[in-house]
Computed example of a mutant assay.
Amino acid sequence: MENYNQKKAKVAVVQAAPVIMDQAKTITKLESLAIKAAEAGAEIVVFPEAFIPAYPRGLSFKTKVGSRSKEGKEDWFRYWENSVQVPGKTTARLANLAKENNIYLVVGVIEKEVGAKRTLYCTVLYFTPEGKLAGKHQKLKPTGSERYIWGEGDGSTLTAIETPYGKLGGLICWENYMPLARAAIYAKGVKIYVAPTADSREEWQSTMRHIALEGRCFVLACNQFVTKAMYPSDLACYDELETEPDLMCRGGSAIIAPTGEYIAGPVYDQEEILYADLDLSLITKSSFDFDVNGHYSRPDVFQLIVNEKEQKNVKWQK
């Protein structure tokens, strides 16, 4: 059911870097930035992909086809240790942050499984002003060498949460190039579409504007600003960064209207919080001439089947 009890929403997109490979210090920084955004009136605050504890750009963990190194395993273990168990103490702290500041908080994390499994996932977490972890989305397809370090999510985390401003949901980085994944998110009725990413190319902006137009939704595109000097020098694989540029990720965060026009950004080459007051009536107004789930959907010709069941490798029977 559509929720129209709010006509406007103030949103904040945080373009910043974590304290790389350090969960505790990153959360302290995140709290400071989220509080700053809330004090400025933001009701929805979005952080980038893999903000806790890092998007390990430039590192291969010294992995080659057919071999893994001792140094790479040491850095991966450090990465794993500083990643986030969901749910756990860290998610409880983030939920409390959302509650104390009366915000919807969206945070990109690296999620670690514990117990029978030890895999890492690139995940986005959604917290409500009531202090609840309302949902998560695990990246369906890690890109390129990301597959060395992250597992693949399944359809059970194609998440969209209810808010007073309409449904909030989205996809991570190059998932946004997957037409069927986008169709699944649109079909959930997402009105405020979050796109945490690590892609700072100019070409990425075309994708973000296209999604706003295609989905007739507001797009909150969020990236990090990272320099090589931010990396800890005691990484076992630090020498891999010698040939990397000083500017590792220049950003490109932006807020885009359902018409495809920029409301804020894109911003490059600095840490910054972008703000925008969203006129939610534009969502319906822009659907007059294109409605991806309505008069432009043609279900008599095209249909998409989505498997939202959690996939398990062992099923116990008694």
Rank of each mutant, 00 (worst) to 15 (best):
104 Y>D: 02
80 W>A: 03
108 G>A: 08
149 I>P: 00
157 T>S: 15
85 Q>E: 15
89 K>M: 04
116 A>F: 14
94 L>N: 11
83 S>P: 08
112 K>A: 03
94 L>V: 05
163 T>R: 06
88 G>H: 10
132 K>Q: 14
118 R>G: 01
146 E>V: 07
142 P>E: 10
70 K>F: 13
123 T>P: 05
147 R>P: 02
102 N>H: 14
73 K>C: 01
73 K>G: 05
101 N>T: 15
162 E>V: 05
89 K>E: 11
90 T>H: 05
85 Q>C: 07
148 Y>Q: 12
79 Y>W: 11
142 P>M: 13
160 A>Q: 06
72 G>H: 05
75 D>P: 08
86 V>P: 08
70 K>E: 15
81 E>Y: 10
140 L>N: 10
137 H>I: 02
80 W>R: 14
90 T>A: 07
98 A>N: 00
76 W>P: 00
114 V>A: 12
143 T>L: 08
126 Y>D: 00
108 G>C: 07
141 K>C: 05
106 V>E: 03
143 T>F: 14
76 W>E: 15
117 K>A: 09
146 E>K: 03
137 H>C: 03
123 T>L: 04
142 P>C: 09
126 Y>K: 09
158 L>V: 09
163 T>W: 01
152 E>R: 12
151 G>I: 01
121 Y>P: 00
104 Y>P: 00
77 F>N: 13
103 I>T: 09
100 E>F: 01
91 T>K: 02
118 R>L: 09
149 I>W: 15
154 D>C: 12
76 W>H: 13
82 N>S: 09
84 V>N: 01
148 Y>M: 06
121 Y>Q: 02
115 G>Q: 08
117 K>P: 00
163 T>C: 07
102 N>M: 03
118 R>S: 12
83 S>D: 06
104 Y>E: 07
97 L>F: 12
130 E>C: 01
91 T>F: 07
114 V>F: 09
87 P>S: 07
84 V>P: 00
100 E>N: 15
80 W>K: 12
125 L>W: 04
160 A>K: 08
112 K>T: 03
118 R>N: 11
122 C>D: 13
82 N>E: 15
113 E>M: 11
121 Y>T: 00
